[in-house]
Design a protein around this nucleic acid. Structure first.
Length: 413
RNA sequence: GCACAGGUGGCCGAGCGGUUAAUGGCAGCAGACUGUAAAUCUGCCGCUCCUUGCGAGCUACGGAGGUUCGAAUCCUCCCCUGUGCACCA
């Protein structure tokens, strides 16, 4: 009586790339029930609107959300605005400043705009948790927290470690899992998705739902994607991330810089290839049938195309090969215009190279630019820059400036 | 509130009156190598200026003062973190 696929087929898709499901049998049961009654499952994932810049690590979870969506279930995109209004002191950093309402809304918009490149906007329910958390007064909060004990909270690995290391844990940090759990109650969730690092918080939802007479939600955890270094999780602040909004060339280049070993994980988590297909590829490389570089190029191209389209991805590939394999200069480099006055050298028709490097964004500071020039890491139109002061042709002058892997075209006028 | 231990560069962590922009590790950047990488080796790794020099200046060791020719290092006050104590009063 319903349009839902047979449960086995649904499970096949949903289990792919999932790190852990609590519990698989429950999910199966719930899917069967949904199919019988024709009621789609309510699937929630929460997002923190403090850092609206998404990267590939986030897509792991979103791809999984999309799978639910494809199967006809209801995906709830929950903005954790209430949390951000208070300010989250997680980690040893100084307490983060609470965001203003305007900032949160702006961030949420940015977030949505990026997320809906993967999710179907029309089929997604967007909610803000201030909707119910904001109404919870002091009494409600106390009643809510009474469902948990201190030792339950300290079971959470992160708290446990910090406690052992005698690092601060502020009281309201303990409330975050509680609030997140309450979200599940308020939304009457069937399933909640999160990274494996969210295990504890996700579990709090189950716990609370029991207390509120709801069936505990099923938890589906997605693996944490390692960043470009292959060791730490992908994160903007560790600068090992590939952002949604990066140009095709950047994206492609960064993907090519991952280690051969890491590549398999990326294949599995960031493409639509089935696990068996990834394993086949891996065997082919191990057996010498395929070159790892070729396979990595395909990976970089596939992922880049997902964001920028086939054309752009092909272009990025071509440029990359030119730059790094043939040692030539890429086409379509970013052009940056610079006023001569800002880079003027001591003599007419000369410029100060460090200033130029800073202005076009290849060096963070003049001091750094100086060092790089001394290290002979800077090339102008293919020639290693000999010194700080460089002669240029008549204005407007145009040259390809390269520092290490990155290159830009400077137009001086 | 009291006692004790701490707060050092992106992170961890030395230094405890003077060649100190501050040992070391991690991260980062560049060069070599290579199939882009990874691994390895080498160099760099606060900022500004120019006459690019083993140049000059500025800023930095929780905060504010002070002692001293000279302080991350000593003193005073304050802020922050952790641990312990807090019953008879």
């Amino acid at each position: 009586m319903s349009d839902f696929l047979p449960v086995d087929e649904q499970m096949d898709l949903l289990q792919k790339g999932a790190a852990e499901i609590i519990r698989v049998s429950d999910l199966r049961e719930r899917l069967e029930e949904s199919r019988k009654t024709g009621r789609p499952l309510r699937v929630k994932a929460g997002f923190d609107p403090t850092a609206p810049d998404l990267h590939l690590g986030h897509t792991v979870l979103m791809r999984k959300l999309r799978h639910f969506q494809q199967l006809g279930h209801t995906v709830i995109f929950l903005v954790g605005d209430f949390t951000s209004l208070i300010g989250d002191p997680t980690g040893r950093n100084v307490t983060r400043k609470p965001l203003t309402r305007e900032q949160i809304n702006a961030n949420a918009e940015t977030y949505k705009e990026q997320v809906f490149r993967i999710l179907d906007e029309k089929a997604t329910e967007v909610r803000y948790n201030s909707e119910w958390l904001g109404k919870l007064d002091y009494e409600g909060t106390i009643r809510l927290t009474a469902h948990f004990t201190v030792s339950q909270m300290l079971e959470r690995d992160e708290f446990h470690k910090r406690f052992q290391a005698e690092q601060p844990i502020s009281l309201h940090e303990l409330l975050y899992p509680v609030m997140q759990g309450y979200d599940s109650v308020a939304l009457n969730c069937d399933v909640e998705l999160g990274g494996t690092d969210q295990r504890f918080n996700l579990g709090c939802g189950r716990e609370l739902q029991r207390h509120y007479g709801q069936k505990p939600q099923i938890i589906l955890m997605t693996p944490i994607l390692e960043g470009l270094d292959g060791v730490q999780k992908m994160s903007k602040s560790l600068s090992n991330a590939i952002g949604f909004n990066e140009p095709a060339g950047e994206m492609y280049g960064k993907l090519m810089s991952i280690s051969d070993e890491l590549m398999w994980k990326y294949w599995a988590l960031l493409t639509d290839l089935k696990q068996s297909e990834v394993s086949e590829l891996e065997q082919a490389v191990l057996g010498g049938m395929q070159h790892p570089m070729g396979v990595k190029k395909r990976l970089a191209r596939t992922i880049t195309a997902g964001f920028h389209g086939e054309m752009a991805a092909a272009g990025a590939e071509e440029n990359w090969a030119r730059m790094f394999q043939a040692g030539e200069t890429a086409e379509n480099l970013e052009e940056v215009s610079v006023a001569y006055a800002n880079v003027a050298g001591p003599e007419p028709n000369t410029i100060r190279l460090p200033k130029l490097l800073v202005l076009i964004g290849l060096a963070a500071s003049g001091a750094e630019a100086n060092r790089k020039i001394a290290e002979k890491a800077v090339k102008l139109d293919g020639e290693t820059a000999a010194g700080v002061v460089v002669a240029i042709g008549p204005l407007p002058a145009r040259m390809v400036v390269r520092l290490g892997k990155r290159a830009k075209v400077a137009v001086i006028s």
